[in-house]
Design a protein around this nucleic acid. Sequence first.
DNA 1: GATGAATGAGCTTTCATTCAT
DNA 2: TATGAATGAAAGCTCATTCAT
Lengths: 217, 217, 217, 217
Amino acid sequence: MPADLLEKKRTGRREAVRAFKREAILQAARKIFARDGLDGATLRAIAAEAGIAVGTVYLHYPAKESLYAELLAGSLADLQKHLRDAVTRAMPDDQLMAGALAFYDFYRQRPDDLYLGLYLGQGLRPAGLTPELDRLLNGRLIQCYTVLSDAMRRQVPSEAPPLDADMLRAETVSLAAATGGALMLEVTGRLKVLGDTGKAVVRRHVELLVQRLRAAS
Amino acid sequence: MPADLLEKKRTGRREAVRAFKREAILQAARKIFARDGLDGATLRAIAAEAGIAVGTVYLHYPAKESLYAELLAGSLADLQKHLRDAVTRAMPDDQLMAGALAFYDFYRQRPDDLYLGLYLGQGLRPAGLTPELDRLLNGRLIQCYTVLSDAMRRQVPSEAPPLDADMLRAETVSLAAATGGALMLEVTGRLKVLGDTGKAVVRRHVELLVQRLRAAS
Amino acid sequence: MPADLLEKKRTGRREAVRAFKREAILQAARKIFARDGLDGATLRAIAAEAGIAVGTVYLHYPAKESLYAELLAGSLADLQKHLRDAVTRAMPDDQLMAGALAFYDFYRQRPDDLYLGLYLGQGLRPAGLTPELDRLLNGRLIQCYTVLSDAMRRQVPSEAPPLDADMLRAETVSLAAATGGALMLEVTGRLKVLGDTGKAVVRRHVELLVQRLRAAS
Amino acid sequence: MPADLLEKKRTGRREAVRAFKREAILQAARKIFARDGLDGATLRAIAAEAGIAVGTVYLHYPAKESLYAELLAGSLADLQKHLRDAVTRAMPDDQLMAGALAFYDFYRQRPDDLYLGLYLGQGLRPAGLTPELDRLLNGRLIQCYTVLSDAMRRQVPSEAPPLDADMLRAETVSLAAATGGALMLEVTGRLKVLGDTGKAVVRRHVELLVQRLRAAS
DNA sequence: GATGAATGAGCTTTCATTCAT
DNA sequence: TATGAATGAAAGCTCATTCAT
């Protein structure tokens, strides 16, 4: 094998190892952030959870905040993929329901990610990442909502007049609020006490929405 | 005046002074928590804001955590009063809308209280307050929801059959989810980007709900 | 004793205690800075030397650099007093010699202070104190040199024409250089190997200077 | 070619390569030490500047300290060469002045080397190099002073009686002190404020010295 | 009761040094 | 020989909590 090919192969493996370690640190960070909060989490705890030394974390991430940033960005990317897959798999008439429930299920299975998003509003202040990061994250979130929004539009029969843009946006926001609120109530343990599940809330919201969409046409 | 009566009077005044100081500390804490966040706030800042020495805070609250526990309990009490007042002031047909919007406005004007509530699920652990406190807070939250729930029941015309208990509960949860979700989206800055306000979301939800309640009767 | 007087007395004692502690910390810092250098010195070492906890240092000085700044400013103030005293005590004809030797002796007895001054040129960069501090320190140093300069002027017989300002300044700088250089060589152990003492160097410099001053008149 | 000769030749080349790399590292270290200070410099920066990996530095120098030990030793060797060259180039009557000014200029152009020298007295402790190193460096410094001392001796007219050994030593020390002190004042920024330059101080010192030497003869 | 000086564990981050590859 | 990822011991600094006055 020629030297440069060997070199490339070695570099490739190194890259892979590096990516793997980054991911391991990220996993540990996700767990610790979720458990202790953005401020409560310590680098020591994250490093310990990842089974490495403190200094090693800094070989991959320049600061605590950047860990959080990457975590959140990755989470939103995963969510988007999750939503797209769910919508694609469903029959046209079920796509809205499938998307909404996928949104719900995603966070239900990864409650840590839900908390991650909450810190956006308050915990991220001191860091210097906000300007571009915020735009990036907002963009990703919007893309997620767009998946739902598109499914909503397809819910209207093709022979009927298409949905008014304002109404579409309003209904998307309502759906997002209902879903987010349901998750919140459930995760903070407030739903159990109210005798309901978040999933039912979401399902009911979508059912009513579909009825209205049909009636409007 | 007999000695024991004098004693009681003196004790009463002392109690009053004590309660007054507790409240002053609480006010200061509310302000500092709001300004610096739950983790960013320091006991020194709170004491300074209250115009007393650090040590004095410990004469009234055993730990920093208990301060925001009390703050949260007070917040829910305030919310309940706020809801009751709004509902009472409104005409029978507007009571549900008034209650829901009051819920929204309360947190909109006190966004920190919203975060306070969110921390319930995760941030309050280290202190030993959780078991009973959690029950207390849940109870208060339920009472708040009950105010909305009652208004919902009164929304149904008296000549029509009363609302099914299950349906009442389901609609209450949905309303809570929609309201909470709207607040969340707004506070984390996600609503602005979606071109909507939380208030509109809540109003729309209630309007649709009222329509359905009328149709059901 | 009236309450306000008692209060004042108590405050006075507190102030005294505070000043005393500040001084103790300063002494410890002087020792550690001299032993380990400006960067080598650690707050932990300083605190340990002072017999207090790390956090306590911060009750008196907001940062490591401010400790250094106060140390240096105090040192220069002491030097000035030392020089003035020496010159005042001496007979008119001996004042220049007395001042120069006092300069030398001061640092000979407090070699730490000599090192303190050396850090000025390089170690103080990151801190935010430099602009005013540097001016302050320069001012104090100039005042010290002025004491020598004045003595130099008085060395010229009153019936002779007074010293040219330029020459006075040049001779002052030369004296400062000779004295400083002698101290440096001695403190870094280079003089021992050269078989001489700094004091002799200074004395010789002054003797020659006096001869020249007399010859000039 | 016999095997052992081949071996020697190969070894010789290896040695040369090794020496070359050592020098490259040293150059890098000089630059970084100059830019960031003795404590501010990091091994990473030095390695990066030298274009090699961190670990590689340790193949040539056992510790960071030994790097600046070698740097300092090299600096003194350079100084000696610099002085010799300057003295050699000058006419007999100007050799003392040339040597003294060369001393001054050398450090003026390499202020970091001056600090390097100052650290000898205090900063070099942790490493285990001091005992022999200190002797070595002292020896080199003496050789430098000897260059000046020799020039001083040659300043005396050959027909006059040669200089007394004690006086020669004393004048050498005085010159060293004046030059060192002038450099110190200049480097720490104290000369600028006194309205003079180190060079002028040195020149004046030598002029007076030469007058005295002539008068003595 | 009220004070605030004192504590010291804990934080994030850096970096000289080691060692498997 | 050369590499650079990994280590972990510090560093400066903060702050909840205690306690002598």
